[in-house]
């Protein structure tokens, strides 16, 4: 019983996930800062490792404000639900061994469904705020969803179809790398769609600080904002974990016999760091595109390519 609880809440459960997510956020911030000729997080912990945690604690200490005219229930439920949804989704991803915290036949589809639910929560979060910027941001988020959701799903489904399994743990255990040949296309589509999903540059259109201040997030403060930020970090972990599982062969790598269970978490962190590095590289070298340009780009190039990729992956398999 205690062992079960420890597994669910400490390792490889929620506490480990949060720690890993904050580590990836630190990595992202540090890489982008170095690419921009800045120092980045520095003071909290060695090399600023604890900065994301310090930021979260600082947010928790802030005054909790619910603006007049906000939909109180949705305004409170959205951040909680967003956090729960991404955490549950991340629980399916094999982070510390070849099996996720939870594993079931067809869990890959469940993860994809949870990702979409998260985006709907972004919309409700914006719609629950009374601010005009939030309204515009929420509508933008919904528009974006129309553009990148299909490519995201199809790039995942292509891999799942060619592997012949809908179970993430099974894919992780096989440890086969799929970034060459046909799957390079799927990998590229997944990376592009994942950045849109994460609302990172060049696709941070729903938040666009310079246009609509912070978009759907503008009215959130204190623990609500902290939960949204934590949810964003776990989402980064979720999507990089998904990329690792689907395309980079999961936490499996060369190791001396018998040492595999010890090396699995390290391999996972190394591979996830590689994905985050790619994300950071894009973030540091692009400007934000406009909503109409994004949707046009998706429907003109990304969606047809992803359909072609999916069809070929199914045919080859």
């Amino acid at each position: 019983m205690i062992a079960e609880a420890l597994r669910a809440f400490v390792y490889p459960g929620i506490a480990y996930m949060v720690a890993l997510a904050l580590l990836l956020e630190w990595l992202d911030r540090k890489i982008v800062a170095r690419l921009q000729n800045r120092v980045g997080p520095y003071y909290a912990g060695p090399h600023g490792l604890l900065q994301p945690l310090a930021d979260l604690i600082k947010l928790l200490a802030k005054e909790d404000v619910v603006p007049l005219g906000a939909d109180g229930i949705l305004f409170t439920l959205s951040p909680i639900a967003a956090f729960v949804v991404v955490t549950v989704a991340a629980a399916f991803v094999p982070l510390a061994s070849t099996s996720g915290l939870v594993s079931a036949e067809g869990d890959a589809v469940a993860v994809l469904a949870l990702i979409t639910i998260y985006l709907l929560l972004v919309y409700t979060a914006g719609a629950a705020s009374p601010s005009r910027y939030s309204q515009v941001g929420a509508v933008r988020a919904a528009h974006m969803l129309l553009g990148f959701e299909i490519p995201l799903m199809l790039s995942c489904l292509g891999v799942l179809a060619s592997a012949g399994s809908f179970r993430l743990s099974e894919l992780a255990a096989r440890g086969s790398v799929r970034v060459f040949g046909l799957h390079a296309v799927g990998f590229a589509i997944f990376l592009i769609a994942a950045q849109a999903e994460l609302e990172r540059l060049p696709f941070d259109i729903p938040e666009a600080e310079q246009e609509i201040v912070s978009g759907w997030l503008v009215e959130y403060s204190s623990w609500r904002l902290a939960l949204f930020r934590l949810a964003r970090d776990i989402e980064l972990l979720l999507l990089s974990g998904l990329a690792v599982t689907l395309f980079l062969g999961g936490p499996v790598g060369p190791s001396p016999p018998g040492a595999e269970p010890l090396l699995y978490p390290l391999y996972f962190i190394a591979k996830a760091a590689l994905i985050v590095f790619l994300f950071s590289l894009v973030r540091a070298s692009t400007a934000r595109i406009r909503l109409d340009q994004f949707v046009t780009f998706c429907w003109r190039y990304l969606v047809p390519t992803s359909f072609a990729y999916f069809a070929l992956a199914v045919l080859v398999a």
Partner: peptide
């Protein structure tokens, strides 16, 4: 300009 089009890196470099 870099800031308004969301190009953080160019913003940092121009100010440097």
């Amino acid at each position: 300009l870099a800031h308004v089009v969301g190009f953080e890196s160019l913003f940092m470099l121009a100010f440097r």
